[in-house]
Design a protein around this nucleic acid. Structure first.
Length: 270
DNA sequence: ACTTTAGCCTGTCGGC
DNA sequence: TGCCGACAGGCTAAAG
């Protein structure tokens, strides 16, 4: 499930099965996802050959010469490559049948995921306002510091804003703020440049590490429940309310920030 | 220009 | 056992 490392792991898992394949048929069982699957995609995708599979933020882009599919996993979505003829379950909303005799299947109980279509040479609306990739060159502590001046929103909300930096979800935001020693409720504009440098490095390190971990657990991409147990052993604050801080022993607290639960150590994070 | 809120869905879990 | 509310890893549109 989907924060950036899971999406990247998904990309690595499905890409070899998709590249060069032709989509022989699109089966849609439930078109009502986060947005309805657009008729333009239903018309254009079948018959196309897949040229590339990219990731931008938490979106997957599947490119063909006729346009690109833009996929999002939402909160509970997953993609798997299965043999054609594998019976579909209740939450299996669409399949792409492939030349190879396999299919790409999307499963999503909560239906917050999406399947959109981008015409050649265009950038889909959902991709326009996105901030830089956290693992790319344009992202660092100075960048965060500059954009945060004058901002009164909580720093956690700030780094989860996809217009600021993409791919930092609720878990990784909490973990990165712990690593940088920043209280999640602190105003973004009051965090020092030095702290933002620590924070940016923590985000990069944690995401990179999680991708490596995901890559080893999900390599063949056929495992039915799809998702590794994250690295639950290695979480410092997320989901640990009432438990001792692994650094100082203080009791981890949980609060609600922007309607999302967040976790922090009252002694290590200021 | 920024910040906050409601809402899209279903499943699961804990308390009574 | 069943009912009920709280909560879940995301994101957008609209309102403030």
């Amino acid at each position: 499930m989907p924060e950036l490392p899971e999406v990247e792991t998904t990309r690595l898992g499905i890409s070899p099965h998709l590249l060069g394949q032709r989509v022989t048929k699109l089966v849609v069982r439930q078109p009502k996802l986060r947005w309805p699957i657009p008729p333009s995609l239903i018309k254009a995708l079948p018959g196309q050959r897949i040229d590339a599979v990219e990731r931008r933020a938490k979106y997957l882009l599947v490119h063909t010469s006729a346009g690109s599919a833009v996929l999002h996993l939402g909160m509970s979505g997953s993609l798997r490559v299965l043999d054609a003829g594998t019976p579909a379950g209740k939450h299996d909303h669409y399949d792409w049948q492939l030349d190879s005799g396999r299919l790409l299947r999307f499963t999503d109980p909560r239906r917050f995921g999406s399947l959109l279509w981008q015409a050649p040479g265009r950038t889909h609306k959902v991709l326009v306002a996105l901030g830089p990739e956290p693992l790319g060159d344009a992202f660092d502590g100075d960048y965060l510091w500059r954009l945060s001046r004058g901002r009164s929103a909580a720093v956690k909300t700030f780094i989860m804003d996809q217009a600021i930096v993409v791919g930092v979800g609720n878990i990784y935001a909490a973990e990165a703020l712990f690593a940088a020693g920043i209280h999640p409720r602190r105003k973004a504009g009051s965090v020092s440049r030095a702290r933002y440098r620590l924070l940016a490095e923590a985000i990069r390190r944690i995401l990179h590490y999680a991708i490596q971990r995901g890559g080893t657990t999900l390599r063949d991409f056929i495992s039915p429940d799809g998702v590794p147990g994250y690295f639950e052993q290695e979480l410092y604050v997320y989901g640990r309310a009432g438990e001792p801080c692994r650094n100082c022993g203080s009791t981890i607290r949980s609060i609600v920030l922007g309607q999302r639960s967040t976790f922090y150590c009252p002694a290590c994070q200021r």
